[in-house]
Design a protein around this nucleic acid. Structure first.
Lengths: 331, 331
DNA sequence: TTGTCGGACTAGAACGATCTAGAAGGCCTA
DNA sequence: TAGGCCTTCTAGATCGTTCTAGTCCGACAA
């Protein structure tokens, strides 16, 4: 109905308060240079008109946008947890977050360009799948922080968790429980899948054990399929690429009448909400997403505010033992 | 390193191509009024400079932003499916989507103001929890489309699925299979939980059956808890508020050694990815998210392009029968 | 009394696009 | 040959801010 309500501008407020636009601008920004009584008068006029600064105009004029672009994958619930944490941290640092999802039919480049169009001063990308070269190209325009992936070249910041350490902790845990026949269901084509597989191989070797790796992926179906392929020669423990895959593995075993962890131990990766569900209680390697997200936001903000060289922050993950891992059944 | 790379502007392209800014603008917009050879020349110059229009400036000048704001909840995987579909539909209509998440510590109002600041021409809100009054207030500034909630007042468009019809289909299905003792695990404080509960009561009454409703919620834990409370007096079928809750219900039963659907049938709502997982195979009422999302995007675009009165699109959901519902065990 | 200083305020130019109005040139018609 | 009408192009205003470079004025020191 009352559709055509033009939004009030600085000009309107200035007129209402009987001062110049510039002064209103000063007051709205909380910048110094306005006497207290005038400040109050302007503030009140703005309040009454329901004035909200037009960020487009503001951003156009001042190069500062205080906007951080965050790309995530809509199909990864784990990413949602990161988004949450990023919002919180950005708020405390006085930044806004622009979100852009990578979805089917919407490649990462599109997501990024959209973020850039909004005027993001820096980009935070969760598990970017772009090539080092492409990343560097974007990094030449604006600081880029890669989250959960560290082989991104020198031009790009990264905040990641130490994949090798994570796998090492996981293998140590399983071996410590007495497992000897451990299978890794890998992440397929996923980012950092290769690193984890390599880490698994080297860690198993360190323990003098044979490293068996089967093809997996990112979701439940992948885990399910992988576990099914294991039925002929059941291992005593499975280390999955992530929690979703682990869940698939567990379900596959359940379907065959196997008990987890009595018959087979299963260990996830991510310590996502999923793992914490009371009926799942998945033991998992935690990368501590909120902490990583906060670190990424801070890193991005630092770069925006002048920090020069790209840094590579690496955090060591830790193990969260719940109820899907235990000593192997005596064979 | 090469940080300070100023983004090329219309001016730069104009100079490179030896034409005026206005003409470049015309070409970039694909507007009529440029000769083909010139067009090619400009396009090539833009290409070479890596020119991308600055949306802030563009949006500032032309009231048209071709931007649709979409608010969603980061904790609802189901919303992610909608986001995907919305992106796709927006693309075909030539609109961009600005995303803003509602998360813990980030109320809906904040998400909306952020979308408005980006210059959204219309707002699409998934299951908005704001009051009709607040929604109307936003609707006076810009068209608002409520997705999956229809009691939003006259000022706001809505695209929703018919809750009563959905529950009716669900109850008919269960009763048709022979179930008499059916329990509804409700949605707690969730949007449209009340409507569905009311629909359940009236549908059960229509069949001359007693309507038992227990407190539930939106996630697995809620379903789990609800199902546990049922153990003393087991129904023959459970209708959950959504798929996540249904999953919790199933797990709770499983934990007690009950077979689904042999001992108890369980019916979900949403037909989310979750329901489709091969180890879940949840029977569910489908609201057809992609279709609803597309309808919402189109409705928003229509309003932006001039459609006057707010419309309330209601789609009838349909049933997807998988493997968690069957005839009750003979008692 | 006068010059200087600093605080409060303002005019006008940016920012990078779009839009309006009109100019230049070619072609057709009378 | 002149007038009219396209088509193609351009100059300059404009969107709503911020920023730069002032102006104005009263207070204070010499």
């Amino acid at each position: 109905m009352t559709e055509q309500q033009r939004r009030p501008t600085l000009m309107d407020v200035a007129q209402a308060a009987g001062v110049s636009r510039a002064l209103v601008s000063i007051v709205m920004r909380g910048a110094p240079g306005a006497a207290e009584p005038t400040r109050q008068k302007v503030l009140q006029a703005a309040q009454e008109l329901g004035y909200r600064p037009d960020s487009r105009a503001r951003l156009l004029r001042s190069s500062r946008t205080r906007l951080l672009g965050l790309s995530f994958s809509s199909s990864q619930p784990f990413h949602a947890e990161i988004v949450d944490a990023a919002y919180a941290e950005a708020e405390t640092r006085g930044y806004e977050i622009a979100l852009s999802a990578v979805a089917s039919g919407r490649p990462e480049t599109r997501a990024i360009e959209s973020l850039l169009d909004f005027g993001s001063e820096a980009l935070i990308m969760i598990s970017p799948s772009l090539s080092t070269h492409d990343l560097a190209r974007y990094a030449s325009q604006v600081p880029v922080v890669s989250l959960l992936r560290d082989d991104v070249g020198e031009a790009v910041d990264s905040v990641s968790s130490d994949d090798h350490a994570g796998i090492s902790i996981a293998v140590d845990h399983l071996v410590g429980l007495g497992h000897r026949h451990i299978v890794h269901v890998d992440g397929g084509t996923a980012v950092s899948a290769e690193q984890r597989t390599a880490a698994f191989r080297s860690e198993m070797q360190r323990h003098g054990l044979e490293a068996v790796v089967v093809a997996g992926g990112l979701n439940e179906e992948d885990g399910l399929r992988a576990a099914r392929s294991l039925m002929g020669n059941l291992p005593s423990a499975v280390l999955a690429f992530n929690d979703r895959s682990a869940l698939g593995v567990i379900e596959s075993f359940r379907a065959e009448g196997l008990q987890v962890p009595a018959d087979v131990s299963v260990l996830g990766y991510d310590d996502s909400q999923l793992a914490r569900l009371s009926y799942v209680q998945l033991s998992s390697v935690s990368q501590d997403a909120p902490l990583l997200a906060a670190a990424a936001v801070n890193r991005a903000a630092d770069r925006v505010e002048g920090a020069q060289a790209a840094a590579h922050v690496v955090r060591t993950p830790h193990l969260v033992v719940r109820k899907t891992t235990s000593t192997p059944r005596i064979s």
